[in-house]
Design a protein around this nucleic acid. Structure first.
Lengths: 210, 210
DNA sequence: GTAACCTTACTGAACGATCGTTAAGCTAAC
DNA sequence: GTTAGCTTAACGATCGTTCAGTAAGGTTAC
């Protein structure tokens, strides 16, 4: 195979192309199982060429995370800016979260891998750049919606429902015998919305809990 | 370092010792990031010695999964054998699930890694050996507890809540600034129990949903 | 206008380290 | 004497990384 050489002969954004391929491979196989040569092959270049754009494998991985997670946190705040009743906003939020996860499998898998790897420093970054802002939005929404409950616990429940569903998807497919379609995702999102709405809103006939 | 040689000089269950060390390392770092030499070092032996007990790295990994997951499915059925009201049983179940996950980090991380890796065949095995039985128990419990709802969706919600909470634990620690203690786990379990109980049980004042 | 030079974006080749695995030999228990 | 349970040594493959060189563009000097 012939590689191109010289300056302007290459694509305008080789770095972005590398990161896209790296995201796909790291998401699928994890950091250790992806070699520099795998990445080079995926973008039709040589291992050494990658060292022109990045200082090493770790640097590629870090840049990949930034590439995939950047601006992910911003979208939730738009969701929260709506003027509707909090009940409507919660349902919209859960549907949106579910769709985000199932429509972006690469981002989702990288997120799950980062949560699993547990490196203190990277978790800190992930929290700050991706999770914190949406989490605070959900907390404040739940504070309005379920004033009787600890808002942190309520927010954790909402996030857990969606994240856990995504995590369970493969066994769910195996157990039901049918693939998890977009419709199934939405059915769960509706179920979860109802669950949280009825489960945490103040109940007139029951004594206050906690 | 001197290795022992000969037949009975070694420990009675070297195989079990290897699997225990393998479980720890595979859970922590994943399959690709653990080398045969790492495993050998952890049990004070040589790489070649491992090939006396197992046919290769893959075989060690498979045996490790079996070692860690065996009999995990049985315990739920004991939970479900209780004669108490389904409300009590659900709470007990959620508390027990939460404790299982947080008390067995190695099992939990291996489970999460298996869910993530997504190899069709291993997911099938994981489903059959670990998830299926508890899931069916939860389904039947939810059928009694929330007859108005799809029992599969209800069971998924219960499992998602606990599994998602465990998955979120690292960012939760980072965000609250304090470690997730046993008490915090139980606080979440109680919160989740209340959520599911009030969220899915039939509501006299509301029209049937779905 | 063009020759000289610099910079960018690569190339092929190789470095030492580590990978999973195997072969051959030894020792102690049965 | 057989065999289980190791040992040391080494195999070829692959790993992340580096190095010297090269081709194509842009910039500057004349």
């Amino acid at each position: 195979m012939q590689y191109q050489t010289g300056r302007k002969s290459s694509q305008p954004d080789k770095r972005g192309e590398i990161l896209q391929a790296a995201a796909t491979q790291f998401a699928e196989n994890g950091f250790a199982a992806v070699s520099i040569r795998d990445l080079a092959r995926a973008v039709n270049t040589t291992p050494a060429a990658l060292y022109h754009h990045f200082s090493g494998k770790e640097a590629i991985y870090r840049a990949t995370l930034e590439f995939v997670f950047s601006d992910k946190a911003r979208a939730t705040s738009d969701l929260a800016k709506g003027q509707e009743a909090p009940e409507v906003m919660l349902e919209r939020l859960i549907v949106w979260l579910t769709r985000q996860f199932s429509d972006n499998p690469i981002m989702t898998r990288l997120l799950q891998r980062e949560l699993l790897t547990g490196d203190k420093e990277r978790i800190k970054l992930l929290t700050k750049e991706v999770v914190a802002a949406p989490f605070r939005e959900i907390e404040s929404l739940m504070r309005r919606l379920a004033p009787d409950h600890d808002d942190t616990l309520s927010a954790v429940s909402v996030l857990s429902l969606v994240l856990g569903y995504v995590e369970l998807t493969p066994v769910l497919e195996e157990m039901t015998g049918q693939p998890v379609t977009h419709e199934r995702d939405m059915a769960f999102a509706n179920h979860a919305s109802h669950l949280v709405l009825q489960g945490l809103s103040p109940q007139p006939d029951a004594g206050k809990v906690q």
